[in-house]
């Protein structure tokens, strides 16, 4: 029970990050490696708001999410849009470059030390059905669920969601019917940033924060996205949760030394057997 809960919690985080990867992939057809740093950045901004400037926690959450979203949109605008190439290879390497820069800047601003981030509400554990849960875990599950619901609503019922689906389905057709595809792409980046940032805010109280905390988390999120079938939102959620569960169970029953490897071994196996992932078409 303990392991399952732990697994679901980290799985939820991976799912959030995986969703961010999917949103960008659907509109732009690339892997956005900057997603990894959106996670760290979310934690950093939250820390700055709450610990350094003493804002209330709710303000910190909203501020950090919005901040990462704005920065993400800027990344698209300044780095990816001016690229003179639609070659996937070039665009993916570009995101890697931006990611290196982001990490460098974060290292400059916040230093290399690990920081303790306050959790959303208290550290008093709750006992439930023989398992001990931190309140933060409940926050993680709840806010992830909320984010997923909002995401579904956004894609189903709003015009910007419709526009994003249009660009995802057929970029050129979307342009022809007069959609500003550039703006849609920026929006999708902002959305991915918000998801990554939220993941960062939620997870850093558990892991402690430093400038490259997002790298491993983000790559596991990416693994989750591929496990579920890259591009599919349901797949991303299922993939993320499954990854979290398997990781936690291996760490619990076998060895925690190789915990970080599990995700990638599973991923390699999935790629060998069924490269389209669980929900892939």
């Amino acid at each position: 029970m303990q392991f399952i809960l732990g697994g679901l919690t980290s799985g939820a985080i991976y799912a959030l990050i995986a969703l961010g990867f999917c949103v960008v992939n659907n509109t732009m057809g690339i892997v956005n490696f900057v997603q990894v740093d959106f996670v760290s950045l979310g934690g950093m901004l939250f820390y700055t708001c709450v610990v350094m400037y003493g804002f209330p926690i709710s303000v910190g959450v909203v501020g950090a999410v919005a901040g990462v979203a704005v920065i993400a949109a800027l990344v698209e605008l300044l780095a990816l849009r001016p690229a003179r190439s639609d070659n996937q290879l070039v665009l993916i390497f570009l995101t890697i470059g931006v990611s290196i820069i982001m990490r460098g800047v974060m290292k400059l601003i916040w230093g290399e030390n690990r920081m303790a981030v306050p959790s959303l509400s208290g550290d008093e554990p709750i006992h439930l059905m023989g398992a001990t849960i931190m309140p933060q875990a409940i926050w993680i599950l709840a806010l992830t669920a909320l984010a997923i619901i909002l995401l579904i609503a956004l894609f189903r019922y709003t015009s910007i969601g419709l526009a994003m689906r249009g660009v995802a389905a057929n970029n050129r057709a979307a342009k022809i019917i007069g959609l500003n595809t550039g703006r849609v792409k920026s929006m999708s980046f902002a959305l991915a940033g918000a998801l990554g940032g939220l993941a960062g805010i939620l997870v850093t109280p558990l892991t402690t924060l430093n400038y490259d905390v997002g790298v491993l988390l983000g790559l596991k999120g990416f693994a989750g996205a591929i496990l579920g079938g890259f591009g599919s939102f349901t797949g991303a959620v299922i993939g993320g949760l499954a990854l979290g569960l398997m990781e936690s169970l291996t760490a619990g029953y076998f060895s925690s030394a190789y915990k970080d490897v599990v995700a990638f071994v599973i991923l390699l196996i999935v790629l060998f057997i069924r490269p389209k992932g669980i929900m892939g078409r």
């Binding site: 993916i92 693994a223 591929i226 990638f264 991923l267 790629l271 060998f272």
Partner: peptide, 28 residues
């Protein structure tokens, strides 16, 4: 053999994953 049927991001992920696996094994 299995991964090079894939393209683009799958390949990126497979090679990246392999690197992380090797790195962790060296470490542990």
């Amino acid at each position: 053999l299995p991964t090079l049927r894939l393209s683009g991001h799958y390949l990126a992920m497979a090679t990246l994953g392999f690197n992380i696996v090797v790195y962790t094994v060296l470490l542990q």
